[in-house]
Design a protein around this nucleic acid. Structure first.
Length: 835
RNA sequence: GCUGAGGUGGCGGAAUCGGUAGACGCAGUAGGUUUAGGACCUACCAGGAUUAUCCUGUGGGAGUUCGAAUCUCCCCCUCAGCACCA
């Protein structure tokens, strides 16, 4: 017999499967559909990572099994190819990003095909293909037209030595990734998407989907909804107000001062009234410098400075209270100002102690503790006028209502989630399809829209255009706005995108008035193309719309989406947001894109660190395929440990997978016409493997197959039918060897079935009746400790068991001179004698 | 600090509607086979002892129970995410 030689058989079957179109999904098939999705990879120069192989192998197992179970499976793949790594690579090597991307994709594709994933390759997509990003731009335009895109001045990360704007990913511990210089903030005009408008739906709809608890929690935490009250504090003697957000309206009577963030607008607005302005400005300057040092100041003592000359009025009791500036309050959360209640908040307590401010207790709590720190718990109100004696929880509602009546409360919900910064000042991204027209700006700003009447301007311009005067949407028929091919794609020294230098591209005509206009030169972030790609797979060639509605209706929502935990906060949230928006404008027909989400653990290097070129600990899947074959790689990666857990690569352990497959191969020569005793084990294994795949327990599924092989080897001969069941169970994990073995029976068999692929065979089914044994090993315990075991028939009665048990010599020994107190009998399991 | 997950042999891990702890694999030991290496095959492989048997053992401590890796309480540690969030 020939030896098992994966190198010889794997390529052959990969070609065969592709020729047969075995993995093509069929639109509108009558079979039930199953959309199985893996996060598409970023085709970097590093090549396919063994981590990709692991998660793709896992979902490939699921896809193959589902097909054998009779589902019409869509299991697609594509490339998320815009973004910084490629741009940086291009800058370093001088190879244009377009060329580098093409090369990297070709390499990834070659590697992926070698592993034998059952992707529907003809549906392959690429986010940098103009025919693809045409629709990314189209979605952006819809967001713009609905008024969900707006410009705002936002500080970006700026490296003063490289003179370029950096993405958050390029900032490592507050320093520039390339030169190591400390990163500064630079305020630039940026496009923003109003994801905050969807915050509530993004939280509430999590109830409708099957995501792991930790993923849901992370999303909820990231959105950070908190319920409280935004309370207005009047500035004494002015028409000006300071708004604060609090979750503890019940402590309002205890508020003895306000604190605002250093960037708060009140300072600029009331500058002329601040008597100690010079010192205040000094403090603010110092605070800004400190914020660049990031978290180092975390544990430091709180500092701040009083705004002399202005005071606020506590709406609860009319008291005049001082206002401070302090850097422990952040502009980016809530309103950028807080009401300080030193008696019931430890931060305020520390601050009040330092600056000798009054501390007024308004919640009756443990008085003792209030001497050394604040009492942050709940209790009955004191020193709170008509609310005295009320419980905290009730008082929160009552005080809020009371303030609302007097128009002191603006809103009651606050989110941590910020709007999505959608501009990048980089070359390698989708151009934002807008132009700037001075002429149109004038006609918008010059028109009397404020009187509420329907002016001609309102009819002519979209919401987005009115919201951002001068910015005009590119006509949809002119999409895509192609990214121009340029020689200089290095970021500019002004912080603007390198596209500003492409004057024949920048200068264009305004689609509204036909006058001179300039194109937006910012590009979209990497997250844009990946926020809707799963829709394109349903209809990748469509040039009329992003996908035909009928196909969206047939395939969506995604039934099972697997990806990494690192994408929980951004990618998952962004794509859910876009999907909800597309639902609102009638492009898609469900409000959640993914029915079920699972996540894989990372694959680390053997030393427990991340694999990286610089550490020299990268495992290249090509080498593994070369030495052991794709089947061994797949099997080993799934066997390594629980799928959702981080695992370390172990180059010795892969041998185990190879040995196993080699023994499977050899077992072929043991086939005989025999009545095997293994019937029960076979059926148990079918059940175990079937259920484990569904539950992501690939490691135990493989273990069960190994156990079954061990048992089959112990038998003198194994029947063909059992062997084939075993091969079918193995086939999703190790498709090549399974197909090879299966096809080898085609020559000897008259059965036409054997001439077809194993993947066209039905998935084995088990008979529940055959799983149960007639006999089982009954455990005999004395005082809960195992003392003996006996083989008895299923369903044996308690009476009979007792009799059998008490006859046993071993047991008699343990019962000698002791009184039996109690006997516990668990049917078909054990008997426990208590003495 | 908060939220979530977890702590089991030399290693990766199995077993959690309470019921035989260590499945399966790696490494290791002994033997066989082989010109040698590798590969392969067989057996052993938690610790301890007075070794045909018994005792101890699932991060530590307490509890519930006939019986706890599994349930409850307290503590310690690891990982992931968030963090002066008002």
């Amino acid at each position: 017999m020939e030896k098992y030689n994966p190198g010889k058989i794997e390529k052959k079957w990969q070609v065969f499967w592709e020729k047969q179109g075995l993995y093509r999904a069929k639109d509108f098939s009558k079979k039930p559909k199953k959309y199985i999705l893996v996060e598409f990879p970023y085709p970097s120069g590093e090549g396919l990572h063994v981590g990709h192989c692991r998660s793709y192998s896992a979902l490939d197992v699921v896809a193959r099994k589902k097909r054998m179970e009779g589902f019409n499976v869509l299991f697609p793949i594509g490339w998320d190819a815009f973004g910084l790594p490629t741009e940086n690579y291009a800058i370093r090597t001088g190879i244009h990003p377009q060329i580098a991307t093409k090369k990297n994709i070709a390499n990834f594709k070659k590697q992926a095909k070698r592993i034998g994933f059952s992707f529907d390759w003809p549906r392959e997509i690429n986010t940098t293909d103009p025919e693809y990003y045409r629709w990314t731009q189209w979605i952006f335009l819809q967001l713009f037209k609905q008024g969900l895109a707006y410009q705002a001045k936002i500080p970006i990360n700026w490296c003063p030595s490289c003179k370029i704007g950096l993405a958050n990913e390029e900032v490592v511990e507050g320093k520039c990734e390339r030169c190591g210089r400390e990163v500064k903030k630079k305020v630039l005009e940026q496009w923003m998407l109003k994801i905050t408008k969807y915050a509530d739906r993004l939280i509430n709809d999590l109830k409708k989907v099957d995501y792991p608890e930790r993923v849901k929690n992370q999303q909820i935490n990231w959105i950070g909804r908190s319920v409280g009250a935004e309370i207005k504090f009047q500035v004494s003697g002015f028409r000006f107000q300071v708004e604060v957000f609090t979750t503890r309206a019940d402590t309002l009577f205890g508020c003895t001062y306000l604190v605002v963030a250093p960037e708060h607008e009140i300072i600029k607005n009331l500058e002329f009234r601040i008597k100690n302005l010079t010192r205040v400005k000094e403090y603010i300057k110092g605070a800004k410098r400190k914020s660049d040092l990031q978290r180092e100041s975390l544990e430091k003592e709180k500092t701040g400075i009083r705004l002399e000359g202005i005071k606020a009025i506590n709406p609860a009791n009319g008291e005049e209270i001082p206002i401070f500036v302090a850097d422990y309050v952040f502009l980016t959360y809530g309103t950028g100002a807080i009401m300080a209640v030193p008696a019931h908040d430890n931060r305020d307590w520390a601050f009040a102690k330092k600056y000798n401010l009054p501390i007024r207790q308004v919640i009756a709590g443990e008085h003792k503790s209030a001497i050394i720190k604040a009492y942050e718990g709940e209790g009955n109100l004191i020193n709170s006028g008509k609310f005295n004696g009320m419980k905290s929880e009730k008082a929160r509602q009552e005080i809020t209502k009371w303030l609302q009546k007097r128009d002191y409360v603006k809103k009651t919900t606050q989110y941590k989630l910020r709007d999505w910064v959608f501009s990048r000042q980089h070359y390698w991204g989708e151009p934002i399809p807008l132009v700037f027209c001075e002429n149109c700006k004038k006609s918008i700003l010059g028109s009397p829209t404020s009187n509420g009447g329907l002016t001609s301007v309102k009819l002519k311009f979209s919401k987005g255009e009115l919201l951002n005067p001068g910015w005009i949407a590119v006509s949809e028929k002119d999409l895509p706005v192609k990214l121009p091919y340029v020689k200089k794609y290095k970021p500019t020294k002004t912080g603007k995108s390198p596209l500003v230098n492409v004057s024949n591209w920048v200068n264009t005509k305004c689609p509204k008035c036909g006058g001179k206009a300039k194109r937006e030169t910012d590009t979209m972030p990497n997250w844009a193309g990946s926020s809707w790609y799963f829709l394109r797979y349903t209809d990748p060639q469509n040039n009329k719309s992003l996908a035909e509605p009928k196909k969206i209706k047939y395939w969506l929502p995604v039934d099972w989406y697997n990806g990494g935990m690192e994408h929980t906060n951004l990618h998952l949230l962004y794509s859910r947001f876009w999907y909800k928006f597309l639902y609102d404008i009638g492009v898609v027909f469900h409000n959640e894109p993914y029915g079920k989400r699972t996540s894989h653990g990372m694959v680390l290097a053997e030393d427990g660190r991340k694999m990286s070129k610089s550490l020299g600990n990268v495992i290249n899947p090509d080498d593994i395929v070369k030495n052991y074959g794709a089947d061994s790689l797949r099997l080993y990666e799934l066997f390594m440990g629980p799928f959702e857990q981080t695992v370390c690569w172990d180059s010795k352990s892969i041998k185990g997978a190879y040995r196993f497959l080699d023994r499977v191969w050899k077992l072929k020569s043991q086939i005989q016409n025999t009545n095997s005793k293994l019937e029960r084990l076979i059926h148990q294994t079918i059940k175990k493997v079937t259920e484990d795949i569904e539950g992501l327990k690939f490691n135990t599924a493989v273990a069960a197959l190994m156990s079954l092989l061990n048992e089959m080897e112990k038998e003198k001969g194994i029947s063909l039918s059992y062997y084939l069941i075993f091969i079918k169970l193995l086939s999703p994990f190790a498709p090549h060897i399974s197909e090879e073995i299966y096809s080898s029976f085609a020559k000897t068999s008259k059965d036409k079935q054997h001439k077809k692929s194993i993947f066209l065979q039905p998935w084995p089914r088990y008979n529940p009746k055959l799983i149960k044994a007639e006999k089982f090993e009954l455990v005999i315990q004395v005082n809960g400790k195992v003392r003996d075991k006996i083989e008895v028939p299923q369903g044996i009665s308690e009476k009979e068991t007792r009799k059998l048990t008490l006859e046993r010599e071993k047991i008699k020994k343990w019962l000698k001179e002791k009184k039996i107190k109690k006997i516990i009998f668990i049917k078909n399991k054990l008997i426990n004698i208590v003495v």
